[in-house]
């Protein structure tokens, strides 16, 4: 039984990991675009972007999952999310949008924390805007956003379990299915070990990154 349960949970965890990894792959760059939008000098870009960020950060991710999964069907009469892969895609879209907005705010905080003197020192040396950003500013921003990003990313590990609300078969779904089929609850508790292990690994990775960037202040 233990082996059966472990295999089933592993399978669910794979789906969890897939959702986790793909969310990061898309949300990290999308967050940067949203960040630039929210800092744009043009009101016509800045205000809608800020409104969007406020809506996404001001409502539960659970609700956003439901809106994205059921919304198009209600509006168009036909849901674009068909089958298991469709549900996974819907979950992914919701996660990417949600996390991109959180990331964008972290980036913004990081960018705004860089003293203006750093830009000016680059300017008076005659450096190009591109060099100033990539050779001077970027690494300082990265250093500052590692701690908040690691918090957010570890939260994402756990948030992936929300996807079960639209029947994405991630690890919690698989764990709880044993309650119905075999009347046992321990597989559900056992899922906790997977989360702990994975977030432990991530914590170590981020500590390592922070250490790596510790050589300057």
């Amino acid at each position: 039984m233990f082996v059966t349960v472990t295999l089933s949970l592993l399978e669910g965890f794979l789906s969890t990991l897939k959702l986790f990894a793909l969310t990061l792959v898309f949300a990290i760059p999308l967050g940067l675009i949203i960040c630039f939008g929210s800092m744009s000098k043009a009101k016509i870009i800045r205000l809608p972007v800020q409104l969007f960020i406020w809506i996404i950060r001001g409502t539960p991710l659970m609700l956003q999952l439901i809106v994205i999964y059921y919304g198009p069907g209600l509006l168009l009469g036909e849901s674009p999310w068909v089958g298991l892969s469709g549900r996974f895609l819907a979950a992914l879209v919701a996660f990417v949008i949600n996390y991109a907005c959180y990331f964008s705010e972290i980036y913004r905080g990081g960018l705004q924390s860089i003293p203006v003197g750093q830009y000016e020192a680059g300017q008076v040396l005659g450096l190009t805007k591109k060099d100033i950003f990539f050779k001077i500013i970027l690494l300082q921003v990265v250093k500052r956003i590692v701690p908040p990003m690691s918090n957010e990313i570890i939260t994402l590990v756990k948030d992936t379990s929300l996807a079960r609300i639209i029947s994405v078969y991630e690890i919690i779904w698989n764990g709880s299915s044993f309650i119905k089929s075999d009347g046992i609850i321990w597989p559900l508790l056992y899922t906790g070990a997977f989360f702990l292990l994975f977030s432990g690994l991530l914590t170590m990775l981020f500590h390592y990154l922070e250490k790596k960037l510790d050589y300057f202040k």
């Binding site: 003293p115 003197g117 750093q118 000016e120 001077i136 300082q140």
Partner: peptide, 10 residues
């Protein structure tokens, strides 16, 4: 040369 040096910390 600035009052607060503005060296690049990295």
């Amino acid at each position: 040369v600035f009052q607060h040096f503005n060296l690049f910390p990295q």
